[in-house]
């Protein structure tokens, strides 16, 4: 369970961008953080992920304890461009001490699940934007972190690719990962189990399940 309790944050001496944000997401699954540009979506994700601390107080817990180090997916594609798609997934397994050969075998299985089996041997730089984002999600699955934070992962994708990436996020959530995705795209938020809508520095939590 991800709990955010009375988080308030401001940049410099300005008005709070987040004020007394409180919600509890009671299970693994997909939580969409929505709101207009500048509403604080990225800031909230950064606070949940521990990248910045709330300036004016508040705390977060995950399953009753500290929030684990999450896996991140960003709007801009982040891949090892010169490496093969399979390499980009396999490299994530090295963090858990896996051997390269085993990691590479597993990577092909994961890529198949994300519809990328046919480009496993292709250099990442040759993939389309949608394929790259799915590749980053496949890598995130391989990382195996219980928490995935995705910041506008479909921001630069067309509708067809957005649907595929949203489906991939859904797949991760169904596999037991807690996915928190900042988005203003209904194609993504409609697939979530719950939403946190940010407006005027406050949050409205809605359970969609």
């Amino acid at each position: 369970m991800l709990s955010v309790h009375r988080v308030t944050h401001r940049y410099g001496g300005g008005a709070p961008i987040l004020r007394e944000i409180t919600f509890s997401y009671p299970r693994s699954g997909m939580l969409a953080v929505t709101g207009a540009s500048g509403s604080g979506k990225t800031t909230l994700l950064a606070i949940i992920g521990g990248l910045i601390g709330p300036s004016d107080g508040g705390d977060m817990t995950f399953d009753g304890g500290a929030v684990p180090e999450p896996t991140w997916v960003f709007q801009l594609p982040n891949v090892l461009a010169h490496r093969r798609a399979a390499d980009n997934v396999a490299v994530a397994a090295l963090a858990s001490g896996a051997s390269w050969a085993g990691a590479l075998d597993d990577a092909h299985v994961v890529l198949d699940r994300y519809g990328l089996g046919h480009v496993a041997a292709a250099r990442a730089r040759t993939l389309s934007g949608g394929e790259v984002q799915r590749l980053t999600l496949a890598r995130a699955e391989t990382m195996g972190a219980p928490l995935l934070l995705a910041d506008e992962p479909t921001g630069q994708l067309d509708h067809a690719n957005t649907v595929m990436v949203a489906a991939a996020l859904r797949r991760l959530a169904d596999a037991g990962t807690t996915v928190v995705v900042a988005t203003h795209d209904p194609s993504v938020s409609n697939m979530a189990d719950a939403t946190v809508a940010l407006e005027n520095a406050t949050a409205s939590y809605v359970d969609l399940s």
């Binding site: 991140w72 982040n78 891949v79 461009a81 990382m143």
Partner: peptide, 12 residues
């Protein structure tokens, strides 16, 4: 630099 930062996100 993005590549190096990416390795950090892979817990290196």
């Amino acid at each position: 630099r993005r590549e190096l930062a990416l390795y950090r996100s892979l817990h290196l």
